[in-house]
Design a protein around this nucleic acid. Sequence first.
DNA 1: TTTTCACTTTAGAATTATTATAAACTAGAA
DNA 2: TTCTAGTTTATAATAATTCTAAAGTGAAAA
Lengths: 135, 135
Amino acid sequence: MKKTDILKKLRSSGLRPTKQRVEIAKFLFEREKTFHFTVESLNRLLTKKSVSKIALATIYNTVHAFKTAGHLSEVEVRGNKTYFDTNVSNHHHFYDSETSELIDIDASDIVIQKIPKAPNGKKIKNVEVFINLKN
Amino acid sequence: MKKTDILKKLRSSGLRPTKQRVEIAKFLFEREKTFHFTVESLNRLLTKKSVSKIALATIYNTVHAFKTAGHLSEVEVRGNKTYFDTNVSNHHHFYDSETSELIDIDASDIVIQKIPKAPNGKKIKNVEVFINLKN
DNA sequence: TTTTCACTTTAGAATTATTATAAACTAGAA
DNA sequence: TTCTAGTTTATAATAATTCTAAAGTGAAAA
């Protein structure tokens, strides 16, 4: 993803492309593979990488803004921290609790044959499959 | 589950059946259906129900002790609080984010036809299916 | 180009869930 | 009954996240 696209991405979702947002967006979206992170790990990586320090509150703000705009998805992982994923398509995860690492699973790699119907007037929003790994 | 069984359950897992543990265990396990809760909701319900106040720290201690003993399972739910479940068999969940309510799905009600193999030397510990509901 | 102002950033305080601490208490073996 | 390891408790500490309010800044309009 080129810089122009980053600007387009931000503007098209109503986010003013500030210095901080562009820097974070470039870090998150200018990569080939999907990226999984927590706010804490993102902060650590950004601090290491860049000259200008971005406030932790700004990282929280930005990540939430990106999530609301649909540029990031939140992954449910047992534990205290919240994980985010640059892969916003419908997909699933392996989770290695030894390393606290998430690995994407393509939606097409899991086929569910039988599923119960939603209770009392509710509908199914989405189905998430989470595969815990061990050694 | 009768009181004798509660005592047996505690003792058999190396937990001294103290007044507090018995009270919490009775509340959690002397019921027909599975029960889902957070420490906060359990604390609220216990306070309402009983005469003697149990310290919040004790509820945390006890819930963790029960979990370690295999009498409770932890459910991964997006968000800040940790959910527990009196159903410790292999099963899945519906989650209604409107009401923050969890509903059990019997393991036999979900059949997965295709599943990817675990990465590099890892093995699959377990597979959790989480179905988000909407109205 | 300058002005203007709603949107942003920021540091630090506040909040919330959870864990740690250490003193008082107690189940149950001796 | 005595003793002691295991337990409970109030409170402090920690950790993740959100709030606050003052200072800063994109970008539209003058």
